[in-house]
Design a protein around this nucleic acid. Structure first.
Lengths: 149, 149, 149, 149
DNA sequence: TTTT
DNA sequence: TTTT
C-alpha cells in the first residue's frame, strides 16, 4: 500500500497545449515537453544530445492555466505522477500510453514564455479548492489555512 | 538544452527481476514495481486503491545487485529517468514503451526483502566506476574523492 | 515569485517523536531522522559512512500519525519543504534553525517500525481535509474527488 | 543505513556567488537562493507571499560555472543534499548551519540570467570526471559511456 | 514536436 | 504482477 510515485520535469513544449472539456465542464490539457541531456560519445568523442519527450496531462485549474499561458516553446517545471493508460487499437490489440499527470506547475522564463503576465506557479490542489469555492480560477492563491504549512 | 528528467518511486516488485547480458557482458535488469495510492470515492464514500505499474530498467552494477537481492515483493526506492522507446510490432505498427531507467536504488525493509544481507543502497555512477576499476561489483562503495561531496 | 522548494528524505528516527499541541489544539510533531551514505576514502581505501541528521516538523494529522506510529528507529519517507526559522538565544544573538516541514509521509518496513498496524502512507493535505470534515484523523483517505487525479 | 537525502530547488540568487579556492585549488561557491510561495490568509483573505532563503554550496566544476554565469537575480534549478555543519561562535557556543550541497544545476531563463551564453545544465559528477581528465572545465559533456544511461 |  |  505504501508507495511513492513522483515525477519532476523541466522542459519545453513541442506544440501548443490541446485543451478539451468533459461533459461536466472539467478541463483537461495535454501537451508534450522535451527534456534534453548532453553526453560525449566515448568512441568518437563527439558531443551528442538525447531528447526525451513526455506526455503531460493537466486537470481542472492547471489545465486552464496551461491553456491561457503555455504555448509551443514554453519552458515549464512539472511535478506529477506517472500513469499508464491502456486502450484498444483498431486491430483489437491492447496498447499502453504512459503520461505524467501534473499536480504542480511552475512557468519558467525563456523565449517561448507567455507575453501576458503568466502566473509563475500553480498547484492542482490549491486550484481545485479555489475553483470550487469561487467559481473562478484564481491561480496563485491558496485557501489552505492561515499557516502556510 | 536545459532540462530535468527525474522520477522517484517507492514500490514493490510484481515478479522477480529478469536479467540479461549484452554481447559485451553488460547486465540489464528489468522488472515492474507497483505504487498504490488510496482515495475515498466522493459519491459512495468507499475507500479505493489505485495501483500503477512502472517498468524499471537497471544497467550494469545496479542490474547485478537487483539480480542478487531483489525478488517478487521486494520494496525498493528507485530514482531515475523517464525514457520512451519505440519498436515495431508484428503488424508493422510503431509502438512505444515508457520505462524508468534507474540510476539510484535503495532497498527498503519489508516482507519481500532479501534474506542474504542485501546492500541497502547503490548508485549507478558509483558502481560503474568501481566495477571498471576492480572488475568486480562492490556495492556501497564510492571511488569519488576523499571528500564525500 | 516562481519557486520550487522540495525535500525528499528516507531515514530512521533517532528518538521517539515529541508531540505538542498549540492552544487551539493543533498537533505539532518534531523528530530527527538520519540519512547515511557510504563512500570509500581515496587515500586509505577505507569505507566510511557519513550520517546527516535532519530536523523534521509535522503538523496536524501527520503529527498525530507520527505520534501513534513512529518511534526511535522507524524508517520513513518524508517529503516536504525547507524552512529556516530564526530565534534569539540567551545572549541575544539571532540563531537559525533549518527544518523540513513534511507534507507527505510514508512509513517503510524495517527493524524499528511499529507493531500496531501502522498506516503506511499519509499526506498532509488529505489529512487536513479529512480531519476538518469528520473530526477524527482518518489517515489513508482522501476526499478530493471521484477521479483520483 | 539505507538513506535518501535529496533537495530540489528552483529560485533566484539574492547576491552574486562568492567563490573561494582551497589550498589545493578546489573551487567552492556559496550563495543564497530565494523560493517564494503564495497563499491566501484565511482570516483576512489577503494574498501573502512567504520567501524562504537557502544556502547553496557548490564544489569544483559547478562552483566555477556558478562563478562565471550566475549572478544576483539569476534563476536556477539546484539538486543536491542537505548538510548541517557545526562550528563554534565567539562565545564558545556550538552553532549549526544547514546548507544544500548541489550536485546538479540547471540555469533557467529570466531577468537575472547571464548574457554571456551560459551552459544551461551541468552535473557535479560529469564535471569532476571531465575536469580530472582534461584539466579544464568542460561543462555540458559527459565521459561516462557510449550508452547515455 | 521543443530548447540552446 | 506487488504490497497492506
Amino acid at each position: 500500500m505504501a508507495g511513492v510515485n513522483k515525477v519532476i520535469l523541466i522542459g519545453n513544449l513541442g506544440r501548443d497545449p490541446e485543451v478539451r472539456h468533459l461533459e461536466n465542464g472539467t478541463a483537461v490539457a495535454s501537451f508534450s515537453i522535451a527534456t534534453t541531456e548532453s553526453y560525449k560519445d566515448r568512441n568518437t568523442g563527439e558531443r551528442k544530445d538525447i531528447t526525451d519527450w513526455h506526455n503531460i496531462v493537466l486537470w481542472r485549474g492547471l489545465a486552464e492555466i496551461a491553456e491561457k499561458f503555455l504555448k509551443k516553446g514554453s519552458q515549464v517545471y512539472i511535478e506529477g505522477k506517472l500513469k499508464t493508460r491502456s486502450w484498444e487499437d483498431k486491430d483489437g490489440n491492447t496498447r499502453y500510453t504512459t503520461e505524467v499527470v501534473g499536480d504542480n506547475m511552475t512557468m519558467l522564463g525563456g523565449r517561448g514564455s507567455a507575453e501576458n503576465a503568466p502566473p509563475p506557479q500553480a498547484s492542482g490542489d490549491q486550484l481545485r479548492e479555489t475553483a470550487s469555492e469561487t467559481g473562478t480560477i484564481d491561480q496563485n492563491s491558496e485557501e489552505i489555512d492561515d499557516l502556510p504549512f
